[in-house]
Amino acid sequence: MSELAFFIDYSRCIGCQACVHACEECDTHRGRSLIHLETIERRDSVQTAPQVCMHCEDPICAQVCPADAIKQTAEGVVQSSLKPRCIGCSNCVLACPFGVPKYDGDADQMMKCDMCYDRTSTGRRPMCATVCPSGALAFTTIEEIMQTRQGRAVNDWQFGDQHVRTKVFVLVPTEVTRVNVAVIPLSSLRRSQPPPVPYDVAALLEGQ
């Protein structure tokens, strides 16, 4: 069996927020949830998607950091910014292709998902993947994923001319070997007209 790896299948997310709350239990950032749970297009859909750090092989967040504050472990886990070094510039927040780092204004520091390093460094599963009921987040072997899911797991991404390889995998159809990210505009998603402004939600619910 190969080693454990992290897999994301956005399409399986049911928006239960279990990952959001479990993330707060991670010892390296206890009390702060660092996972993102996005509602994709609230007006027309209930679609949601989680986003953990993808742990790039050559992290762009670290490249644009002016303070050398973002380091990788030997296992390839990209850590939160080093507290003594981070100067709170937010370069990493804006440059990350996956939109992962969070800037904490009070602490003047960037924090991000570190794949529950307190757990994964001792062979346990990350909190979010442990509690995800739908398998949108999974921490398992590639063999188990291939046996239980359709498609294949890839970790190559293309953003324009920028190629990014990540430690975390995403599940895609079998013929796809690299995820070529294109910007999908809001206009192509919206199917309904916006409600009149201003409008009263309670009145709408009561059918008045």
């Binding site: 299948d9 956005y10 399409s11 997310c13 993102h36 996005e38 994709i40 297009e41 679609q47 998607a49 986003q51 996956f98 939109g99 992962v100 995403v170 599940l171 895609v172 995820v179 990210v181 294109a182 910007v183 999908i184 998603l189």
Partner: peptide
């Protein structure tokens, strides 16, 4: 982040 889910 939203775009990644839509891309998949």
């Amino acid at each position: 982040r939203k775009n990644l889910a839509l891309t998949q």
